[in-house]
Design a protein around this nucleic acid. Structure first.
Lengths: 240, 240
DNA sequence: GTATTTTGAGTCAAGCTGACCTTTAGCTAG
DNA sequence: CTAGCTAAAGGTCAGCTTGACTCAAAATAC
């Protein structure tokens, strides 16, 4: 910051973190939404989140909210900062800036009851985005940005594996991609791609026998984090 | 945010924006640094920036700072939000969160004198990052993140053209890539790539006669913003 | 005119992609 | 026991892109 700081009064604001927590259940992308128990937007659906406390970094606040809302410790899932939203009128209570985080995790245990959070539930992305479930504040825009980031991350990184409880099969992983991107992938070509990418998948040696079909080899997440080259070349993805 | 907001005291913080402004001069990447005229870090080099004012969005604050520091209107250059930095001890004056922005522009007119900003100057990335010019606050980390983002953006988008004053040649554009990425590209293959990417370059029909060498065709920026597929497949870039 | 420099076009082997086909391994129905 | 079903796993192949390379074109300097 510049020395201008001493002359103009600094705008003092409150800062929150909001979480876009994605998971895939029944082959469809879901987001964790809570029902607001206070004004404003009482009763409306919203992204989980809360105020940043004194002495806390944004990352720490996001991890704390994640733990409080989902009883997840955050060490098992992917968490990254998404964007800061600052429209002065975005919160009727006053000047509140929020920093959104994107979290990707396997089909998580449902949020614990009994916390001070109102009812939290997994909502399919289609219901959350088509206007059937109106969201509080600017959370619809945040959700759209989170979806866009998640789709991009799947193409360029190995985070898709964060959606899969270990161990998982190549088919499990492919269904993650299909749920997030919204279209089918060729199973054979997908397998060739992910198994040839060094460090993406580590075979456990075991197999899983499904109810129908041939048994599939099981894998763990490997050490690689980047997908080079990316998974697709045609970069257009359609909304669900 | 959740209803928890009403029970716990919200941490009230000041928010600043800091700008990582890159340009390419003499085939080398440069960043705009100011010399601090106030405590803390009096006399140290720092990224330009300042406090967000009341009723102002972060984007507006970043554009305003950009205008104040560089006399640029921001309509000609690329500006995007980079990351929010929130380490409680990052500013000795107290709890100050900063949202960093990345700006890419052509070799800009040097910052106007006479503003309340202290001396501002273009600093080569090598001097700014090798420790020869220690930066105030956590600005060294912000600068590294900005460089990483800029390198990634060049690979996946057409923002490299934002570094070039129009009209420009394919060689001009290639030298941008070489300066930001820190290695040479094959001129012939680079030309094939960028001219075949639909909407990247629009020929003006004119040519530019250089001091030495064959005249080069001139181009304007096209409407495309994404590079599909990306420019490289080997994704490793070395620091300057 | 010759040397030099940069642009611009072309060649070619190697590798990857997307589309498609075949086989394998388990289950279930009859 | 066999036939049929499903999904996994592996293979084929034309077409495209890439990276390395060569070569011609257009200007200036000497």
């Amino acid at each position: 910051m510049t020395e201008r700081s001493g002359r103009r009064p600094a705008a003092v604001v409150a800062v929150t973190v909001d979480l876009v927590i994605f998971t895939v259940r029944q082959d469809r992308l879901h987001v964790l939404l809570i029902e607001r128990g206070n004004e404003p937007y009482l009763g409306r659906a919203a992204l989980p989140g809360g105020f940043v406390r004194h002495g806390e970094t944004l990352d720490q606040a996001a991890l704390r909210e994640l733990r409080e809302e989902t009883a997840l410790d955050g060490r098992q899932l992917h968490l990254e900062q998404l964007h800061a939203y600052s429209e002065p009128a975005r919160d009727p209570r006053g000047r509140i800036i929020t920093v959104a985080y994107l979290a990707l995790g396997p089909d998580l245990p449902l949020p614990v009851a009994g916390t001070d959070a109102a009812a939290a539930r997994w909502t399919s992305l289609s219901s959350a985005l088509d206007g059937g479930v109106p969201l509080a504040f600017d959370h619809a825009a945040i959700l759209r940005d989170g979806l866009e980031r998640a789709r991009s991350q799947l193409e360029h990184t190995t985070v898709a594996a964060a959606f899969c409880p270990e161990p998982f099969t190549v088919g499990d992983l492919r269904r993650i991609y299909e749920a997030v991107w919204g279209f089918k992938l060729d199973p054979s070509n997908f397998r060739r791609k992910v198994t040839r990418t060094e460090g993406f998948l580590e075979p456990t040696g075991d197999r899983r026998v499904p109810e129908i079909g041939r048994p599939a080899a099981l894998y763990r997440r490997g050490p690689a984090s980047l997908l080079i080259p990316p998974l697709l070349r045609t970069g257009d993805v359609t909304l669900p």
